[in-house]
Simulated scan of single mutants.
Amino acid sequence: MRFMDLKETAEYLNVSASWLYKNARHSGLAIYRFGPGVNSKIRFEVSEIEAWVKQQRVNS
């Protein structure tokens, strides 16, 4: 498994880091936390992000 941090994921999705932090779960993105308490690091699994992007496709 490969992970991206919040900033990398936001850049990949072309959204702000604050939008991603606030809306990730609501949008269906899984958040992984590494470390204890408020100092934990937020990460996103690369293959899950790629699958989520494919699900966002709009058929016309």
Rank of each mutant, 00 (worst) to 15 (best):
K22W: 12
V15K: 04
P36E: 15
E50F: 10
F44E: 14
W19N: 04
W19V: 03
A30K: 09
G37I: 05
L20G: 10
V15N: 02
R43N: 10
F3C: 09
R25Y: 07
E8Y: 02
Q55P: 00
A10N: 12
N39M: 15
S16L: 07
V58K: 10
V38C: 05
H26R: 14
H26C: 00
V46P: 00
S16F: 00
V15R: 01
P36Y: 04
V15C: 04
H26Q: 13
E50P: 08
V58M: 13
R43C: 12
W52D: 11
E48H: 01
N39K: 15
R2S: 15
L29E: 08
G28S: 02
Y21L: 12
I31G: 05
S18W: 12
E48L: 14
S27Q: 05
Q55I: 01
M1E: 15
F44Q: 13
R57Y: 02
W52Y: 05
A17P: 11
E45F: 00
G37A: 00
S18Q: 10
K41I: 15
F34P: 01
M4L: 15
N59C: 00
R25N: 14
Y12S: 15
A10Y: 07
E48C: 06
V53H: 05
F44V: 01
G35D: 09
A51F: 08
Y12G: 11
V15L: 00
Y32T: 12
L20C: 06
M4A: 14
I42A: 13
V46W: 04
N59W: 08
I49L: 13
S27K: 02
H26E: 05
L6N: 05
D5K: 12
K41G: 04
N23Q: 13
P36Q: 15
N23W: 03
E50I: 13
R57Q: 14
V46Q: 12
E48D: 02
W52Q: 10
V15W: 02
N23D: 03
H26V: 10
P36I: 05
Y21E: 13
N39F: 14
K54Q: 07
M4D: 10
A24M: 04
S40C: 15
E50D: 14
K54S: 07
L20W: 11
N23C: 04
R33W: 03
V15M: 08
F44W: 11
E50Q: 02
R25A: 10
Y32K: 15
T9G: 01
N23M: 06
S16A: 07
L29I: 12
S16I: 09
A30P: 06
G28H: 00
M1H: 11
V53C: 09
V38H: 13
L13P: 02
A17Q: 10
K54A: 14
V38K: 15
Q56G: 02
W19I: 06
R25C: 07
K41W: 07
N59P: 07
A24C: 07
S60V: 01
N23G: 09
H26N: 13
S60D: 03
E8P: 11
Q56N: 08
K22T: 01
S16Q: 09
R33C: 05
S40Y: 03
Y12A: 04
A51E: 08
G28R: 09
I42F: 08
Y12M: 11
R25K: 15
G35M: 11
K7L: 03
E45T: 04
W19K: 09
F34T: 06
L6A: 02
K7S: 01
A10T: 06
V38I: 12
E45P: 04
A51S: 01
V15T: 00
W19Q: 02
S60W: 03
G35I: 00
